[in-house]
Amino acid sequence: MFTWIGQFLSSSIGKKTTMALTGLLLVGFLIAHLAGNLLLYKDPEAFEAYARKLHDLGPFLYVLELGLLALFVGHIAFAVRTIVENRKARHSKYAVQADRGGKTLASATMPLTGTIVLLFLFWHLIDFRFDGGFKGLFADGASGAGAADVVWNTLGGTAHMAVYLLGIAALTLHLSHAIQSAFQTLGLRHPKWTPLIERGGVALAVLLGLGFASIPFAAAIR
C-alpha cells in the first residue's frame, strides 16, 4: 500500500523533492524565528512576552520542536545521500575543468555551507536551548523577565560574535542558491515568474542574513 512512498523517496527526483520541501519549510521557520527575535528591538517586555507564549504552549511546544527536528533530519539525511551518490557518479576526475557560468559560488558550496550551518546550530542550541541562560526563567510560571538580557549577555563576546557571523554567513550563502533551486526541483518554472523567484530568493536570503546578523552586533555595541 505504501510502496510508492519508498519508491519515490529512493528515486533521484524524490530525494531532491524531499530536500526542496523540507528546505522551504525550514525557510518558513527561519522567517518566523527572525520575526520573533526582532521583538528584541521593540522592548524587552515584548520579547519576553513572546518567549513566555512559546513556553506556555507546554507539551505542544515539544511537538513543534519534534517537527522542526524532523525537517532538519530529513533535509540532512537526503543531502548526505545525494552528496555521496554524486561523488560516486564520477570516479575519474577531469584534469582541466572550466565552468561555463552555470555553477556559482553558492551552488558549488552547498554541502560545505550546509555543514557549517549544522555545526553552528549545535552551538546555538547549547547557547539557548540546552543549558543556556534561559534555564529557570520560565520555570513554574515565572514571568520570563530578563530573557532579553540573557540574549544580549550571551552574544556579547567576540567568540560568539565570530561563530554567529560565520554561521549566518554560511546560511545566507546556502539560501541564496537554495530558494530558487527548490522551486526548480519542484518543477515550478515559468518564463514570467522564474526571474522574480531567482531575485526574490537571493533578496530573502540576504534579508534573513542581515536580520539575524544584526543581533550579535546589537549585543556587541550595548
Binding site: S12, K16, T82, E85, N86, R100, K103, A108, S181
Partner: peptide, 10 residues
C-alpha cells in the same frame, strides 16, 4: 548511476 541534479545548470 547518474548523479542527482543540484541545479548548477552547467
Amino acid at each position: 548511476g547518474f548523479g542527482n541534479c543540484t541545479n548548477h545548470y552547467e
